[in-house]
Design a protein around this nucleic acid. Structure first.
Ligand SMILES: [Mn+2]
Ligand SMILES: [Mn+2]
Ligand SMILES: [Zn+2]
Ligand SMILES: [Zn+2]
Lengths: 146, 146
DNA sequence: ATCCTTAATGAGAATCATTTGCAACCAGCT
DNA sequence: AGCTGGTTGCAAATGATTCTCATTAAGGAT
């Protein structure tokens, strides 16, 4: 059984929640998508399995609490998530023009953040760093057309 | 005339937009609020001045484009903004329990981010760093009750 | 200062992601 | 197999944000 499955099982047990068919399917779908996803995309990937969109919405907070997924960003009016296990922490670079999202390693920034956390006795649960601007392709186009 | 006023005027002129009564009022209100605000709070601070909420929503993107305000965070389903001029860049530490927001200086992290930006030829427009977890007060309470 | 053109506004309706109510269901335990 | 309280699908509700449209008012021209 994959790591994330046992982790979800343990989490639910601890909370007194039940491991249901829908929850299993949603978790697996979240780990089969190797890109950012919103509730609807996750639901689409379960087409034909009779899992309701409402249940997807209800399960997302559980996966968040369990530390299995995280909110990657909010764009175009929707929350976009990504699964965590197996994906190292990273920075999101979002091009305001073409909306593409690039990722870079976050490790080098973490020690400095942890120092700041210690200074104020803050217990870090989740670090979100997103940087918006123009990707190199869109910079070139912007220069050409000016 | 305050710095932000001339800046807004110039911005609107450059874009061929008009400097209207409502826009002036909204800008001033945004700089009189010295805390994070959402559209409704900004609108409330204009109570009695006959500025519609729709116009507040329409003006927010202008202030963003003009670099006068920035999206600080999204919480409880609403976008929260803050004015920029006079406020140095900072990290947001959000307590998941009491929802309080703390701020720390961001300058030490910026050089590293800029190196990463250069490496991928990304033009930074806005850096957003928010860290969620537990503030020191809520950590104590969490320990006591366990 | 008055005209003119056209963008901007207020008010309310519309949109749409997310949440919720509820009756039927089912996971976990005896 | 029988209980029981959590869970689900479905549909309706919610609420932040956007849009429509008739009316108003910037601001350049006269
Ligand atoms: Mn990512
Ligand atoms: Mn702030
Ligand atoms: Zn781009
Ligand atoms: Zn707290």
């Amino acid at each position: 059984m994959p790591d994330h499955n046992t982790r979800f099982k343990d989490f639910l047990e601890l909370r007194g929640f039940k491991l249901t068919r829908s929850r299993k399917l949603i978790l697996d779908a979240a780990f089969e998508l190797h890109e950012h996803f919103d509730a609807e995309k996750l639901h689409d990937s379960l087409k034909g399995l009779n899992v309701s969109l409402a249940t997807v919405y209800r399960t997302l907070p559980l996966l968040l609490d369990a530390g299995l997924i995280q909110l990657a960003m909010r764009s175009e009016g929707r929350d976009r998530f990504e699964h965590i296990l197996g994906h190292p922490r990273h920075v999101h670079w979002i091009c305001e023009n073409c909306k593409q999202v690039f990722e870079t390693n976050l490790d080098e920034l973490v020690p400095r953040i942890e120092v700041a956390a210690k200074a104020q006795k803050f217990e870090i649960n989740h670090i979100n760093i997103s940087i918006s601007g123009l990707c190199w392709k869109c910079r070139i186009n912007a220069n050409e057309s000016q």
